[in-house]
Design a protein around this nucleic acid. Sequence first.
DNA 1: TGAATATTTGGACGATAGTACAAATATGGT
DNA 2: ACCATATTTGTACTATCGTCCAAATATTCA
Lengths: 248, 248
Amino acid sequence: MVRKPAKSGMKADAKVASTRKPNMREAILAAAEELFSTYGFNAVSVRDIAQAAGANPGSVTYHFKTKDGLLLEIYRRHCGPMNRRRSELLAAARRVRDLQDRLEAIVRAYVLPAFTSGSDLTGGGTRFTRLRAIMSAEGNEVVRKIIAQTFDDTSHAFIDAIHESLPHIPRTDLVWRGHFLLGALYYTLVTPERISRLSRGSADGTDAGHAIEELVRATVAALQAAPVDQGAPAPRKAPGVSLGRMLT
Amino acid sequence: MVRKPAKSGMKADAKVASTRKPNMREAILAAAEELFSTYGFNAVSVRDIAQAAGANPGSVTYHFKTKDGLLLEIYRRHCGPMNRRRSELLAAARRVRDLQDRLEAIVRAYVLPAFTSGSDLTGGGTRFTRLRAIMSAEGNEVVRKIIAQTFDDTSHAFIDAIHESLPHIPRTDLVWRGHFLLGALYYTLVTPERISRLSRGSADGTDAGHAIEELVRATVAALQAAPVDQGAPAPRKAPGVSLGRMLT
DNA sequence: TGAATATTTGGACGATAGTACAAATATGGT
DNA sequence: ACCATATTTGTACTATCGTCCAAATATTCA
């Protein structure tokens, strides 16, 4: 990480300029979370984190042993609350009578905790989700295990709930579409400025509330679409340009 | 990058083991493309690339001057053919009479070139698209300019074409949904094994043909969904769990 | 062929990476 | 106040990074 021209004359820390350092461990965690979720794991050095937290590089080693350990602790910190909140919202959504409303509630229960945090509300949710997005792209090995252990259960629970609302759609299609939802969610958090650019200013990609509504609306419609029956050939007349499966 | 136990005894290259080195520049480009699209830009060193190409690290500097220059050249190599192909398919799609079929053809014209390459067909398309996905997550500065210059025109052309097929949907919603498509596309290429895992083996995330069909089906449905009118409050009765905009 | 050019090689440079460790300092219980 | 413990500091180590460069080698064309 190179950024920051760094005005000379400052005392070399700055940070939030509130109380000095009531808990350095927390400051390091917060700084690491912010930097990792912005520039990725590989692009940020331990020294970058220490400086942003107003700490000494050695302190990072003391509290978290390794850089991987620091990342691991960030995940531990967030996974619990986020999945607990998701379970609560999912349970509430399951109790909705109307089938259409229930489906929407389920999707909302999946999306919402990704934008809001259990503990601190100041963008903590989007920050951690953005981190997860970047980590999945970088293919970090430390994270891959946590993902499979912590998130797959939740994903299965949601897919099952959706399948209950849409019994006529094969589970396979629902897996694909749920996957698309997560991809869309991640991409929106990683490059929100693209929304603003392409809409020529008439939309704000960083508006979490709007993003949620768009995500929910699009996903519910996608989930309800007719399934893609894999075995059978094109059932209707040639759909416009005919370039069906010409690869792999 | 650390990977590879590296069997001792080999001559330190291996590579594809076809003809020796007819064009080292191409070999370096191919190796860089493969490594970048797998591990990301930051995690791969120039030495990694040189070794994978059976070249000397100095050769990389000679041909591409800097590591950024190498990345730039990869983009230059692919952007032209891919966008040309997209334009062709889009033009063909626009000529489809039936409105429903036309919409599907347009979406297909957007998705298909991301999976197939103009020049070499051996996964070249998915490899470059996966690279773009990772680069957008890593927030690489060199790439950001190319994106805005090269891809925004194409994106606008597709959004406009979609808007013609769906005049009653505000452009803003179509921007969001097109954005979701790209995110879903990227995420599918970056973590295809998640599809296989969650579907418990009944689906293969690396099956490009299937992925395209699922993407097209889901996206067409999402595009056709009723717009999210931002100003107005919830039009229907409380949609299940009532947690509308409680953030930002 | 021979000279001009293009490419490859191997080694080196300074910068920065993650981590370790002993000394210095802050903290809390008695 | 004192001591045991927890934390912070400064520094140092080794490894690897991107890039550079002169010498060696391959290629091309008059």
